[in-house]
């Protein structure tokens, strides 16, 4: 083969190399525009005087000041803390408990796993709809308890502005705890059998083996689970809309519903953008350190 064909194949080779870039380019461009571009855009809106329509006159931190002066935003933040905290703790506890229970050579484990996990396949809107029905004070759980003979049973959290946010916790835990169970179960199955055998040979009891050896060795999964749950909590939107609609009043608002309401119902685009930026900051504060440590630790496959 002569020189010309080697230049030709050189060209081919460089095309081959560039094919890879050409293939990724559209997605990368989309990401640059729709993710990074939009973040900047929203950030800019938050610094503008936008109300009903987006305008781009500089207003400095005016929108953030207005945001933090709003009673409603404080309620949303407070609710997020309550909801997030309870949601994370209960899911972790339930998930871990169920995983350990399922780890005992259970007959029909597959069926049980399916049962614990199926809520995760449902839309939060469906979950919200059914829990709204179950928890409604008129015909739901309360009436069921009355009919069962517990006449003084009272359960009106759904319409009680002090407790509405806790109903969101109930439904959210129902939906997500099975998933946490699956994460833990996978981790338990990944624990080195020889360590367990060794501990057993040393005479450790089963609870000792779990609390002393297995659970500490799956600590990274706890971290992952917390990050997943925290992330879910910050973004929670659909469930609140379907279950309480943010009500009564705005007593069960979360930042996500607050942002939506400001954007699409109250025509407060600037405040809405500012609240979205606050949410982004919160998520980043959780995710970035986590990803950093994950990517650093798992450099080999990442």
């Amino acid at each position: 083969m002569g020189a010309s064909s080697s230049t030709e194949s050189n060209l081919m080779a460089s095309l081959q190399r560039n094919l890879s870039k050409i293939v990724v380019a559209p997605s990368f461009a989309a990401s640059l525009f729709f993710v990074y571009g939009f973040i900047i855009w929203t950030a800019w809106m938050a610094f503008s005087k936008s109300r009903m329509m987006p305008v781009y006159d500089w207003a400095g931190l005016r929108q953030y000041e207005r945001l933090w002066q709003m009673e409603r935003w404080h309620v949303a933040i407070e609710n997020l803390l309550i909801f997030g905290g309870l949601f994370i703790v209960i899911c972790l506890f339930l998930g871990c408990l169920l995983a350990v229970l399922l780890d005992q050579r259970i007959r029909a484990e597959g069926v049980l796993r399916t049962v614990f996990l199926y809520p995760m396949a449902l839309s939060f809107i469906v979950t919200g709809t059914v829990w709204k029905w179950i928890l409604n004070p008129g015909l739901g759980l309360e009436k069921m308890m009355h009919d069962l003979g517990w006449a003084t049973f009272k359960f009106d959290w759904l319409v009680n502005s002090d407790f509405a946010i806790y109903t969101v916790v109930i439904a959210a835990v129902w939906q997500a705890s099975g998933f946490i169970m699956a994460m833990f179960l996978a981790a338990l199955r990944g624990v080195d059998q020889d360590i367990i055998r060794a501990a057993y040979m040393d005479g450790a009891s089963l609870p000792r083996i779990y609390f002393g050896i297995i659970i500490p060795s799956i600590r990274p999964v706890f971290l992952s689970a917390i990050v997943v749950l925290a992330h879910l909590a910050v973004k929670s939107f659909d469930l609140v809309i379907a279950l309480t609609g943010g009500g009564p009043g705005y007593s069960s608002d979360l930042p996500a519903t607050f942002m939506y309401t400001m954007a699409f119902q109250r025509n407060q685009l600037g405040i809405s953008a500012a609240s979205a930026m606050m949410m982004l900051a919160t998520v980043m504060a959780i995710i970035v350190p986590y990803l950093y440590s994950e990517l650093r630790g798992g450099k080999k496959n990442g």
Partner: peptide
């Protein structure tokens, strides 16, 4: 077919998984 910067491109794409969608709602509707 890794190219120079492939890891950075991936990391930047990955970031999109974590963004709370509220932050893109307004620009997207425009």
């Amino acid at each position: 077919f890794r190219f120079k910067g492939a890891n950075i491109v991936f990391a930047m794409l990955l970031f999109g998984c974590f963004v709370p969608f509220q932050v893109v709602l307004l620009p997207m509707s425009v």
